[in-house]
Design a protein around this nucleic acid. Structure first.
Length: 475
RNA sequence: UCCCCGAUAGCUCAAUCGGUAGAGCGAGCGGCUGUUAACCGCUAGGUUCUAGGUUCAAGUCCUAGUCGGGGAGCCA
């Protein structure tokens, strides 16, 4: 067995750097493992080695002196990226910058990292460069903090719904619904490329494909979630979602994670109320659990994120109808690149004006014209608008899109025909309205956009470990 | 997909009117130091994204492409 095997006992007993820094007092003994951030060798016969193990933003300072057997042979040669296992005594730090440090009694080098070619130097790197080193970028302060915040957000999402009795539902990744109205789909096929079997008309014969029909990666679990909501009451999905849109922006991914609660016996007002409570719960949880990481983002990434979080938590979201929003935009006196007119969708510039300049906080816009929204949204009594709502936040724009669903079969059929959709291919979706239909509502939230909003990270590709975007699927 | 901008040392950038490529950081070596993005000195390090073109001469100008960034659309 190799070198690692000999250390298994110590590895299993290691203590997190976070624990040492926050909980251990001078006099304790500890074994920690981590990756070297910096190593400064003093001719006075000792070396300062800071290591990080991902458990927290801060690094632990190790003091190793020349009495250690491998001091000259190994310790003085340590550099950024090396992995080490250190056992020593927690002591009060003589220097500034840390409460305690670890005086090494034994320092084992588990893995070297040649400083001549280790890509993560102890200096500023651009996000663009780190994206090309996605397998190592988690070792930086920024990406470690992003990973911890993303984790805290994910945990908070489950907690919020679980504590309210929602059932976590796993909707299919592969779907045969090819027109959910949410953009381009990735096709899933096992037919040999270029040699697909043809039917008599010369078209590809999909009946010979794996699923005996065309299949795709899901763009939303909503329709399936509705069926379970109409049996279990409140459910939520939380999983990967795919869009084959050729979108090249700092806010779009081809593969991203989406949360989609769906609630039976719920109308649009209830939907909006849950959306607001939900966002506030998640923001609050991150502030509570990742204070150091949030402080870091506030200092190094975006100096407004903490104030924004506090502001959002301390204020009610603004409720505004689409009609009122259009009215405000018309009367703003501003000149727009895109026209404002009742019946046209709001553009990014309009949404940002409302949420950033008019109110300076999240805004929930509701009751959009039916003509610009999906077939499944419930027609309002005015016969012109549907019970849809978008939650808009400063800087990001739309973070949540939701609606009360059309629960009347005849109205749904009418809407589908008006949008050139074939009700027969949605037979199971229509069945929900045929048998025991109930008012229900839900919304979808992009996980990465929430993490972006919370951390202030400018590009969505930097809040997911391995971003998939047009022409990019490295790693 | 559309518009704009960019690509020069490992990284971040500079290079005047088109005139023969430089700095900081990092790295190597040496010095100094309870240090903490340590500090000081020396050294090495380049097919200037690719392919064409203009010119006596191209990092610089032109054309096409590739990749990256910003904005827009689509959306979460």
């Amino acid at each position: 067995m190799g070198a690692i095997a000999r250390y298994v006992g110590d590895i299993m007993n290691r203590i997190l750097v976070k624990t040492v820094l926050e909980n251990l007092n001078p006099g304790s003994t500890a074994t920690v493992g981590g990756w070297v951030r910096t190593c400064r060798v003093s001719k006075g016969g000792f070396a300062f080695i800071t290591i990080n193990d991902g458990s927290c933003l801060a690094a632990l300072q190790i003091v190793a002196d020349a009495t250690l057997a491998n001091y000259e042979g190994e310790i003085v040669k340590l550099s950024a990226g090396c992995s080490v296992l250190v056992t020593g005594e927690v002591v009060e730090s003589q220097g500034k910058g840390q409460r305690v440090e670890l005086k090494a009694g034994e320092l084992r080098v588990l893995g070297w990292a040649d400083p001549a070619d280790y890509p993560i130097q102890p200096k500023h790197h651009t996000m663009e460069f780190l994206r090309t080193q996605a397998h190592l970028r988690a070792r930086t302060n920024t990406f470690g903090a992003v990973a911890r915040v993303r984790n805290a957000v994910s945990a908070a999402i489950h907690e919020f719904f679980q504590s309210r009795g929602f059932i976590y539902l796993h909707t299919p990744i592969i779907t045969a619904s090819d027109c959910e109205g949410a953009g381009q789909l990735f096709r899933v096929s096992t037919l040999p490329a270029g040699q697909e079997p043809k039917d008599q008309a010369g078209a590809i014969d999909w009946s010979q494909d794996f699923f005996a029909r065309k299949a795709y990666l899901t763009v939303s679990g909503q329709l399936e979630a509705e069926t379970y909501a109409c049996a279990l009451g409140n459910v939520y999905t939380f999983g990967p979602t795919f869009r084959a849109e050729n979108s090249n922006t700092p806010r779009h991914l081809a593969e991203f994670w989406m949360v989609e609660p769906e609630m039976a016996f719920c109308d649009l007002q209830g939907d909006a109320r849950v959306a607001e409570e939900f966002l506030k719960y998640v923001f609050s949880a991150v502030l509570t659990r990742c204070p150091d990481d949030m402080q870091f983002f506030n200092e190094r990434v975006d100096k407004t994120v903490l104030a924004t979080m506090e502001h959002v938590l301390g204020n009610d979201f603004v409720r505004l109808s689409y009609t009122e929003a259009v009215d405000r935009l018309v009367k703003s006196g501003k000149t727009w690149n895109y026209p404002i007119q009742w019946g046209l969708d709001l553009q990014t510039e309009h949404e940002r004006y409302i949420t950033e300049e008019v109110f300076g906080k999240p805004v929930i816009i509701s009751d959009y014209p039916a003509s610009i929204k999906a077939f499944y949204m419930r027609m309002n009594d005015d016969q012109k608008t549907v019970a849809a709502m978008d939650v808009l936040v400063p800087r990001i724009g739309e973070i949540i899109g939701g609606s009360q669903r059309e629960d009347r079969l005849d109205v749904l059929n009418e809407r589908m025909r008006a949008m050139n959709l074939e009700p027969d291919s949605y037979w199971w979706y229509c069945d929900l309205r045929r048998y025991g239909s109930v008012p229900h509502a839900g919304f979808g939230l992009g996980l990465e956009r929430v993490v972006q909003f919370i951390t202030g990270m400018a590009n969505i590709r930097d809040v997911i470990p391995y971003p998939r975007t047009p022409r990019s699927a490295e790693f």
